[in-house]
Design a protein around this nucleic acid. Structure first.
Ligand code: SF4
Ligand code: SF4
Lengths: 139, 139
DNA sequence: TCGAAAAGCACCGAAATAGTGCTAAAATAC
DNA sequence: GTATTTTAGCACTATTTCGGTGCTTTTCGA
């Protein structure tokens, strides 16, 4: 069904939350209390996002995570790639497939995959938030 | 990674093959020989497509499957829905999700899901085939 | 009546996913 | 310096999904 993994979903939720608190460090504890997510799992996800450079972290009391760039500059595709790997509908779009020789839909699938990639690259985390939500996104 | 299942992939390949042999009954044996797919699995997939009415079958020697309508009228979304269930990036797009109360991205995710649905509804099995569509491909 | 083919059902094993445990390192506060 | 808060890193388990198969029945044509 072309499902997002929970990791991606939680990650996007957390990033959207961070987007609503610009420049502020938010701890995992705070985020999971607000969003009601499994704490350890979200921690794992944010670690990955941190390693990948979409959020930055500080430790200790008052620490937490915040966005490195504004949410308008963070396409969904980027997040999904970090948390799940390349956006690809089939093997051949990411690695190789041993059926390529006899496959009659590869090029067609390539086109669909591109379209879906475009959707995910054109939409940003900022656009995930409902129109008049929480806070302005000004920096 | 938003992957298609193998069932969908095999299904699409088989349908594309049938599209290249209009009105002709093709047996599972013939199709898997041509496309090098696992026989029993493709049989299972075609059964599902048959139940759903996108292909029709006749049994016995010379039997097999063929498209009910032309491939131009068969959107990818239809095939994926039959073989995997509703096209939905998240639970809430298909059933319900117990996080909906605190979820801040649901509406946003809804928009992305719609876009992806549109991509899959706008593209048909006919368009999967490489440029010279109707040309029989084997030999 | 025989063989080719789909239909139906049930099952197994492997892989991906969701989620947790535990320890270390850094930043802060006293 | 010690305690506390918080991220970092690693490894592991449990569950679910998925890919694939076995076997029997039904239908059809020759
Ligand atoms: S589309 Fe064809 S080539 Fe690509 S992964 Fe699927 S079978 Fe392999
Ligand atoms: S987007 Fe929000 S409401 Fe929808 S499934 Fe994910 S968590 Fe639940």
């Amino acid at each position: 069904m072309l499902r997002l993994t929970r990791r991606s979903e939680y990650g996007l939720m957390a990033l959207a939350y961070l987007a609503s608190r610009p420049r502020e460090y938010c701890s995992v504890r705070e985020i999971v209390e607000e969003l009601k997510l499994p704490k350890r799992l979200l921690a794992e996800v944010l670690k990955d996002l941190s390693r990948a450079g979409t959020v930055e972290a500080t430790r200790g009391p008052g620490g937490g995570y915040r966005l490195v760039r504004s949410a308008e500059e963070l396409p969904l595709a980027r997040v999904v790639e970090i948390l799940e790997g390349p956006v690809a509908m089939t093997d051949c779009m990411a690695q190789t497939c041993e059926l390529e020789a006899s496959c009659i839909i590869q090029t067609g699938i390539g086109r669909v995959t591109s379209s879906i990639r475009n959707v995910l690259e054109d939409m940003t985390v900022a656009e995930l938030l409902p129109a008049s939500s929480e806070a302005p996104l000004a920096v």
